[in-house]
Design a binder for these strands. Structure first.
Lengths: 177, 177
DNA sequence: ACCTGAACACCGTTCAAGT
DNA sequence: ACCTGAACACCGTTCAAGT
């Protein structure tokens, strides 16, 4: 039986972490604990490791974005839906700012692994629609496309946001000839 | 006047850092100092910040790679030279392993800024050769290409190295029609 | 002019003691 | 059953004292 205060604490920690990390990706665990109004022990009971906490915040964000796919496909042609969805993804990543970079290399890999399934699913859905109507080449691979988005959100944090131009180049590579 | 022991110390620190960081990107400053046989103060006199040290190691590596361009262009057609050069770049980054991920977001940006000039120069040289002989489209942008390489070396550290296939997709996008 | 290494503030994490 | 918060080992960085 989970005590109600325990359930509340978990939610409070996640909310505090989401806010604090968006502002500064290197916010310390103890700072997050204080902000959430819980002791360090409680923090670590819920998230045994700093990376576990970062991952949980990251995961919630990914889920939100993935959920947007179906309505985009209802409103736009596949390539256009892909363009908009990818720009949304990049914008969200940019807003999250420090989060991606705060993850160490191992945790970053773990984040990719966990989000891999849902995100690949999202991209595949769009690709399939494009292959069905002949606008996207048949050998286009969702996995490759996903990898490239990491370059896009790095480009998006530069002073001159190159992401849109780079994305167009990518989409050109996907278009059926 | 720079004392000879001071000059030696700087070199010893850089060497120790290069070796230690290749093995483990999170090696601590004090560990590097001990390995180099210098006190913490000496370490910080030469590199006022952990990121300064990481950056110096990173920079040396980039210089080595950039220097390889002319001979590649002597031996291969532009697109093939670009393919080989990029795979070399990715392999070197992979060997450096933790280094790229150990840099915080700010330092990572600084690293990109500093290496940007020389690396863009290298890519531009190859692009110009390709535009001259008609194998590379005229609107191809070296800056965009550079951004994509970051996605490649992330892909290269996955169990199934997707970098070669992804690179071929990219080169397809650059080819003149 | 340069070096050493103890010391400082703070980090992620643990664990005894409480309720 | 869950919580608090002092404590631990260690981090990046500083600075008095030496040569």
């Amino acid at each position: 039986m989970v005590r109600s205060d325990a359930r509340e604490n978990r939610a409070r920690i996640l909310a505090a972490a989401r806010e604090a990390l968006a502002a500064d990706g290197s916010t310390s665990m103890n700072q997050i604990g204080q902000r959430a109004g819980v002791g360090a022990g409680t923090l670590y009971r819920n998230f045994p490791t700093r990376d576990d906490l970062l991952l949980a915040v990251y995961e919630a964000e990914v889920e939100r974005i993935v959920a947007a796919v179906p309505s985009l496909l209802d409103l736009h042609a596949p390539l256009e839906a892909l363009r908009r969805w990818t720009l949304d993804l990049v914008a969200a990543m940019r807003a999250k700012h420090g989060l991606g970079d705060a993850l160490g290399s191992v945790a970053h890999q773990a984040a990719n692994d966990r989000s891999h399934g849902p995100v690949i699913q999202a991209i595949s859905t769009i690709f399939e629609a494009g292959k069905a109507d002949g606008s996207i080449r048949r050998d286009a691979d969702p996995g490759d496309f996903l990898q490239f988005t990491s370059a896009l959100w790095r480009a998006a944090s530069a002073p001159d946001d190159r992401a849109p131009g780079m994305l167009d180049l990518l989409l050109d590579g996907l278009r059926a000839r």
